[in-house]
Amino acid sequence: MSDQVPLLEASGLTVRFGKVTALDGFDLVAGTGQLLAILGPNGAGKTTFVRAVATLVRPAGGTLRVLGHDVAGDPIAVRREIGLAGQFAAVEPTMTGLENLQMTARLFGHRRRAAARAAATVIDLLDLGAVAGRRCATYSGGQRRRLDLGASLVGAPRLLLLDEPTTGLDPVSRREVWAAVRGLAQAGTNVLLTTHYLEEADELADHVVIIDHGRAVAAGPLAELKANIGRDVIEVEVSQPGQLPAAAQVLSAVTGSEPRVDPLVHRASVTVGSASQPGAAALAAVLTGLAGQHVSVGEIGVRRPTLDEVFLTLTGHRAGRQGQPESAGRRLQGSAR
């Protein structure tokens, strides 16, 4: 409809569960026509925000408008605009994919025939034709997740809410879901997704909001955020532990930044200094330097920063679970789980 109405408008949004404050004055304005990723560690408030948008939790304070509708004042209007696919694949395992979609379509308000049409369309859209007549209990993780996604689409929502859409999926299934989400976004559906995988935000999102302790700590177009926080990391693993200091020295000399040294795994890593010094160029210099010092290298590479490193940059603490000590070993890697 109108371009003037923002997709989401959160102002001072506060949600509490007993003594726990899950969202603590969360502010966000997001326009339509984009794929927005909410990025943050477990316990940061991502899921709570999605649940607030889906009218499933009642805010203790602040306001939240979805396409102009107030979640507290007019929840039914909000529910007509959204489709929710959760962390759990919320489909009925004893029903077939087709039955699940038709049921959800009826519950969105479609009449019988329109519901059948919507279900058939979504099955085509998500490439589920081969399994549509089978009970969902027999589906693979990726098929289930795609069906869950489909169930959120049969009402033709203007905003698709995906709460950690690929958590727990194997890499192949994850790519299947990514392809589907990307296709939907390209086709014009507004998407809000939460993730704790930087890689996922990287693959899918136009805009990223980074959330920590219930507040937005950074927001903006992905490219912009990347320029600030997404610098490459060069990581060296030495074959002989005794040569680790020498390797660290080379990293420091080439990049001008303080390397992180992890003697346990014989690794030293450093964030590549600036946008003017791309990771690959620095890597060549590092290799030359290491050869000059006769450091025998076990493994070396340029990689994207882990979420942990992004968080360190942005918030000054590691991306552990809220309230846990930094050394708790719960390091969230960009791609590992």
Binding site: A114, V122, G155, A156, L184, A187, G188
Partner: peptide
């Protein structure tokens, strides 16, 4: 998959 805008294909109830 090649997708078209779901609201356009499905229609909103």
């Amino acid at each position: 998959p090649t997708m078209t805008l779901p609201p356009a294909v499905i229609g909103r109830p």
